[in-house]
Structures are given as C-alpha cells and as structure tokens.
Design a protein around this nucleic acid. Structure first.
Length: 604
DNA sequence: TGCACCAGCGCC
DNA sequence: AAACGGCGCTGATGCA
C-alpha cells in the first residue's frame, strides 16, 4: 500500500528544490518547463498512468497522472492531476512536441494515452525498446523491458517496483516521484548507447526528420521509429464490426455446437476435447491407425483424421472441432468490442524476422469464413490491398535467380512455370491440379523442405497425393532449374558448418540471427516481406488524408476503411504506396498487388 | 490452486 | 544428418 509521507500539497524541500529535478503542479511551472526545454531537439519522455487494473490498462478509460520530461541536465515531473486544467496541459504539450522528438521506452503505449488524454500524437519518436529489439537481431533470449535493456546496455539496475503503484492518489509519495524521475535518467544513457550501436549500420546519405532530430542513421531503425505513431493510430481506430451479424453468427454456432457436442458425448461416451479419450476411442474401438508423437502419445490432428471420413465419429468430431474454433474466435472478438469496434494491439517487432504480431484479440488469424463479420461503418467501405506471391518475388530477388526473375518480369504465373518444369508440359497446358502441386513445391522447397515432408505437406494442404519417389524427382528438378536456389542453400549449409549461428540480412538490411538451416533460408525472405509492408504503411500514411484510415495489417495485406465518396482516390493512394515500397525493396523483380473494395473484409 | 508446457489450428 | 518458417489463443496435462 502506498504511504502518504507528507500531508501538505507541496513536496519536501529536498525534492522540489533540487537543481536537476522539478515537480510541476501549476501552470507557471509549465511555462518554466517550456522555457528550459524549447532549446532541445528532443526530450526524454515517460508517463505514469493511474489504473485500477494494470493487466487491463486502457487508453480510453485510464488517466495519465504524471508526465516526465527531461533533457541532459534536468527532469520535470508534470503532475497533470494537480494542474487540473486539461486544456492548458494539451496546449503546453502540443507546443512542446510539435517539432521536437521524444525518447522513451515502449512509446506506442505512452503516446496512445497522450492522444486520448490530451489530443497530442507525437510523430518524432525514438523508442529504446524498439532499438533494443533491432539490435538483438531476433535473439530469443533477450528481454526488452526497460529494466532488462538498461541492464544490458549500461550495466545499471532500475527498480521497477513502483511501476504499478497507486498513481491516482491525491498525494504521491516521495518514492513515487523519485521512481518517475529515474526512468528519465536511465533513458539518457540507454538512448546514446543504443543509437550509436544502431548507427554502426548507418548510411551517411540518409536524411529525414527522425534522422536529424535524433542523429540516427540506421535505415531499419528509422523505418521502425517512423512506424510507431502510425501503429498507435491504427490501434486507436479499432476495426469496425457488424454487431448484428456477429451476434447472430454466435447464436447459430452456439446452438449447433451444443447439439452436436452433447450428441457426441451421449452416443460415444467420449469427450471430444479430451485427447486421451479421443485417441483411445479411435485406436481401440475403431481400429484406426494414428501417428504417434515423439513422446509416444497418439496424435489426432484433423489432417490425419480426414483419412477416415467413413466413420461417423470422425466426421462428427471434425465438425465439432471446427465449430468450436469458430465459436472461440467469435467470443474472443466479442470480448474486445466497444462502440461497435474491436480495439486490438500490435507488437511492432513480434517475430525475429521483424514481422508484427496482433493480439488481444489476434486479428491476423481470423478464419476466412468469419472475415465478413468486419464491416465498414455507414458511409464507408473497406479497401483490401494485398501483395501477390510476395515471398516468391522476394526470394527471386534475394537469390538473384535468373529464371525466376525472368518469369516474373515476363508477367508469368510462377506456379505454372514450375509446374511445366517438373511435369514436362507446356506452360499453356498446365491443369489447375498441376498448378496446385507446383504451388506446394514452390512454397516448400525454397525454405528447405525435405521430399519426405513434401509428400505430407502436399496432401495436408493441397489435397494432392504424390509418392516419395515423385517428391524426390520434383525436388531434383526444382533445384536443377532454379539453379541459384541450390547455390543459396548450399552456401548456407556451408556457413552453418563453420559457425554455430549465422547472421542473415533482409533486402532492406535488417539483421537476423539464425542457427538452423531452415531458419537461415526462411528469415531473410519473411523479414524482407515485413520490411516491405512496414514501408508501404509508412508511405501510405504520409500520402493519405483524413478520409481513410488503416484498420488492420496482416503480413502482406493492408486493410483500409475509407469514406465512400473518396474510394477511388484512396484506393489509388494505397496502390501508389505499395508500388513505391515495392520499387524500393525489389530492384529487379516487379511487385504485384490486388486491391478490392467491399463493405466487408473479404476479397473480390 | 496456479503455472508452464504442449498440441492443435487459424492466418500469413 | 536432416531440416519450411512465423505468430496468438484455447484447453488438456503435469508438476509444485
């Protein structure tokens, strides 16, 4: 519990009167802060938010209590509750942050609160958490909390115990204010260390506001820093939902699920969600041969069970599972809705490759059958824009494979090209089934899939049965034809023999560590895709106006909500942004993308 | 009881 | 020697 050390409004002399630390509780204090900080190009920044429940802290509900601002010498702790004039504080922040940058840790979080509390969204950010993640190159072992980052880069220890203390109480304790100031002090040291590390991969030629404000030259870091406020805006926008359709779908699935679930339990005396009971039933009662996991237990994956659709138990089980998944996803979405929109979050560098991830709820794995739940508001539409065959294009560029590049330059369908090679038929004569097989081969083999796995993979994902010998032949033919891919894979194998861990680079220069062969060939391609999308988002956000906003991002797709009256203009801007990013990342291979307009989130 | 782990599956 | 990768969410399971 928080203790009140002082019962007067003012703090003890040792705190307020220190030269390097000022506690600001009134408007004249704000003016003093402005005078001192107006000479800064950037300001060290942090804030403390009062929340009933820190697990569920919410920028739309919770209030900022303290805003800490600092330069190299001074720290100002602005108590916005004591000042008690939101308009004045807003004006002060708007003036201060309009042209100046801020340095902070996990800034997307802070600036969302700044926006909801004071209508200010800082555009020039340097985030030491993002910096640390870039420097870590995807190393899974590294943590990126302020405490971990400070310890790793400066050797100092930060006490975070008061982070979730009571920031709403009338009198903050001396310790709370010292805690608030300490974050600013450590940022000074961390900032310079991580910036200088990043700048070892700097480009002198690079210009731009973020670069000049922070003295930052690393292109990947500049891209990421630019993205921060854009993601904050996307999260604050939320994505609109058709509540009627959501509820009716939910009811339909619920009743259907309950019917089938209890029917299953009654008829077979087995809980369909107990792996033990299910595998027992399938193996012992129905004499179905199931594959085993390495631990010795049976696996009851849908893909295996689909071999036994003549058993009613199996058919029913598969239906129940699918229903349950839809139901869970709908409930997950529902629990994050407010005012007809879902407010999810992004982890900006969520995967080692640089890919973003989506959480609370995850809006990057919505089953295609449920995407229609998402519906633009009245008078608005969705613009659904996604890159086509982007990983293959990036792989062609990355390996500089002449034949694959040529196919793309000529505008060919690469799956058909591959099909004609491995089947030995003319490009024009490839059947849809043959094209599907080639698709499996293209996607699998560039990332080092074994012929054995190709057999399983084709069956599971493309419903195509091939023998192991055929798979081996296709494997040979693929690498004989796309010669650079064999050279690339062999080079990676050689390097991994010499070194335990390999540093690979995306086309944009993002560095990623890989210790397995499959990672070392996959990461640079997946990572280049993430660079590409992030860049397209940044370009779009610079070109767009207020008649459109991004509402979701899914690895190679940008979902925009636009005013109906400006569909054409906005669709064209999305296209231009994607094209521009494409030209930047891909120098020899053309990009291709599809843009469709719809009330709902679906293509075509 | 709570936590860590895994399997399974949705998306890319 | 052999190897497709990434994520988040749910629910069962096993351990303290």
């Amino acid at each position: 519990m928080t203790k009140y050390l002082f019962d007067s409004d003012s703090l003890p002399p040792q705190l307020t009167d220190r030269d390097d630390l000022k506690y600001i509780t009134d408007f004249s204090g704000l003016e003093k802060v402005s005078r001192v900080l107006e000479k800064q190009k950037f300001i060290y920044f942090d804030c403390e938010v009062a929340s009933e429940n820190f697990e569920n802290i919410n920028p739309f509900k919770d209030k900022i209590r303290l805003i800490q601002l600092g330069n190299e010498e001074k720290v100002f702790i602005v108590d916005v509750q004591k000042i008690n004039d939101r308009g004045k504080v807003s004006e002060f922040l708007a003036d201060l942050l309009r042209e100046r940058g801020i340095v902070g840790h996990n800034l997307k979080f802070d600036i969302k609160f700044l926006y909801t509390n004071f209508g200010v969204l800082p555009k020039l950010n340097f985030d030491t958490m993002i910096a640390s993640q870039i420097i870590s190159e995807g190393n899974e072992g590294d943590r990126h909390s302020l405490k971990a980052v400070t310890s790793r880069f400066t050797g100092k220890d930060v006490d975070k115990r008061l982070q979730k203390s009571d920031w709403g109480s009338e009198h903050l304790t001396n310790q709370q204010l010292e805690y608030a100031a300490e974050d600013i002090r450590v940022l000074r040291d961390v900032f310079k260390v991580v910036r200088d590390i990043l700048n070892k991969d700097g480009e002198e030629s690079l210009s731009g506001k973020i670069g000049s404000v922070f003295g930052l030259k690393n292109p990947v870091a500049i891209l990421e820093m630019t993205l921060i406020p854009i993601l904050a805006e996307i999260e604050l926008s939320g994505i609109p939902v058709d509540l009627n359709l959501l509820n009716s779908t939910l009811e339909d699935k619920k009743s259907e699920f309950q019917l089938l679930y209890f029917d299953f339990r009654k008829r077979f005396s087995v809980d369909p969600f107990s792996p033990n009971q299910i595998t027992n039933c399938l193996v012992n009662r129905l004499k179905i041969e199931l594959p085993k996991t390495e631990k010795g237990s049976y696996s009851s994956q849908d893909t295996f069970l689909r071999n036994f659709l003549d058993y009613e138990e199996v058919r029913l089980l598969l239906t129940i599972r699918t229903l349950k998944r839809s139901l869970d996803k709908l409930l997950e979405i529902l629990s994050y809705i407010s005012n007809g929109r879902v407010f999810g979050e992004f982890k900006q560098i969520g995967a080692p490759t640089g890919r973003m991830t989506s959480l609370r709820p995850n809006l990057q794995n919505i089953p295609s059958s449920l995407k229609e739940i998402f519906k633009a508001e009245e008078g608005r539409v969705f613009i659904v824009a996604d890159y086509s065959q982007i990983e293959l294009r990036l792989a062609a560029e990355y390996t500089k494979d002449e034949r694959m590049i040529k196919a793309f330059v000529e505008g060919r369908d690469l799956h058909r090209v591959t099909a004609s090679i491995i089947i030995g038929k003319r490009y024009e004569d490839i059947t849809p089934e043959e094209r599907r097989l080639a698709k499996a081969i293209n996607f699998g083999l560039i990332y080092g899939m074994s012929p054995k796995f190709l057999v399983e993979y084709s069956k599971a994902n493309y419903d195509i049965e091939i023998s192991l010998d055929e798979a081996k032949q296709f494997h040979m033919d693929f690498f004989d034809y796309y010669k650079s891919f064999r050279r690339w894979h062999n080079a990676v194998k050689e390097k991994l023999k010499k070194h335990r861990v390999l540093e690979v680079k995306t086309l944009f220069g993002r560095k990623i560590l890989a210790s397995r062969f499959t990672d070392a060939v996959n990461y640079p391609i997946q990572g280049s895709g993430s660079d590409l999308l992030k860049m397209a988002v940044v370009f779009f956000s610079k070109m767009k106006d207020s008649s459109s906003k991004i509402v979701n991002l899914v690895h190679d797709e940008i979902l925009v909500e636009s005013e109906k009256t400006k569909i054409k203009e906005n669709a064209s801007i999305v296209g231009k942004a994607m094209e521009k990013a494409g030209k930047f990342i891909l120098k020899t291979v053309p990009v291709s993308f599809e843009i469709s307009i719809n009330d709902r989130w679906k293509k075509g």
